[in-house]
Design a protein around this nucleic acid. Structure first.
Lengths: 211, 211
DNA sequence: GTCTATATTTCGATAGAC
DNA sequence: GTCTATCGAAATATAGAC
């Protein structure tokens, strides 16, 4: 945190960090209002970035006040982390397959294929993530608990594995970038019909990885 | 601007927005100190993001105070815009070639090739730009003067051109993404030897665009 | 050109009523 | 569960001395 960082938060030591709101148990449970806050935040964080988005704006769009948000979330960062969690869980399946054996070009291609499906389905989440990398890294460093099991870390590990030829690792990076290229650079320019897009993208990736 | 936004700036109407500092003429001229500020800002904006970087930090790293920066730049945004300008000028050459004729896959490949050279040479600038997209767009919207002539706008135009087949536009997006993939995702993982990287990347791009 | 000191605003977060 | 009111902490930007 950088600004109004929990002014009265260091009140009683040994106390729970959560000042009020819902019980700790119920905290992660989705509720309609909670989800509406998350959806609105997702939109604004993507459009303007996390830092430039104020709780006031989120509240305004939802038709209630800033303070009400604090019943559902402990802090602004918590909202971002909840969104991060949503996305993070998507990567887990792919992640486990990546940990199983050696990553050949063929394995990579099939991994990318399932990743592509997930990204197509959850594009807004990935977009938000992409546009708030700096903030997310900052927060990740602070809570260096929750040692990922992080998709990005595992990717970097593979891409720096010297037992794979540099040529192949370049191809892997390219194919990964190609997915981002189509979803985020091409994005709306290519047209929103992901049904047509996906097979064309898969073909291109295949040309990149085959042989 | 969102926070301490020019408190006493709306003083005398009809007055120049620039309160003090160097003369308007000399303002864009590079000086050693100005460049040092820009270099430091480039680093911090990339590491932590524009919003999370304070003028205090920039000043601290340079060994003088916050206020001194205001002799060289009118505002924090001005620093970002100066960096944006640096990068923007790199794209101009490619941009003009793109405006000349119809963009075929062959033209695209050669454009990408020169863009790649520029990006390899000026990677930090592109990295900063990539990691501060949201802020840059916000500022661009505010100063909707300086109608770009913007690289990104022209790219989107091409990628949505219906006279090019969807298949080819997907390939173009892929190849563009591939460049980002190698430079920014693969990044340090692939190793810093851009001499080896460039030809491998060009080969991959060729496989994507040829035939 | 750089400093000290300060004005001004914004925003996250809390307290407590309802 | 949401509101009003307010606190406390930055951070941008300015004024004016040196």
């Amino acid at each position: 945190m950088r600004r109004g960082s929990a002014p009265g938060a260091a009140a009683a030591p040994g106390q729970d960090a959560r000042p009020r709101g819902r019980s700790e148990q119920a905290e992660l449970e989705p509720t309609p209002t909670r989800d509406r806050i998350l959806d609105t935040a997702l939109q604004l964080f993507t459009e303007k970035g996390f830092d430039a988005t104020t709780l006031q704006e989120i509240a305004d769009r939802l038709g209630f006040t800033k303070a009400a948000i604090y019943y559902h979330f402990r802090s602004k960062e918590d909202i971002l982390m909840a969104l991060h969690l949503r996305m993070h869980q998507l990567g887990v399946a792919s992640l486990e397959r990546m940990a199983e054996g050696p990553v050949t070009l063929e394995v990579w291609e099939s991994l990318l294929s399932s990743l592509l499906d997930e990204m197509m389905a959850q594009r807004p989440l990935f977009l938000m993530h992409e546009r708030n990398q700096a903030v997310l890294e900052r927060i990740h460093r602070d809570n260096h608990e929750a040692q990922h099991e992080d998709l990005q870390a595992r990717l970097r590990e593979i891409l720096s594995d010297p037992s794979i030829s540099l040529r192949d690792r370049v191809r892997m990076s390219c194919s990964l970038g190609a997915v981002f290229g189509v979803l985020f650079i091409g994005g709306e320019a290519l047209g929103p019909k992901s049904e047509e897009l996906a097979p064309l993208l898969r073909d291109a990736i295949h040309d990149l990885l085959a042989r």
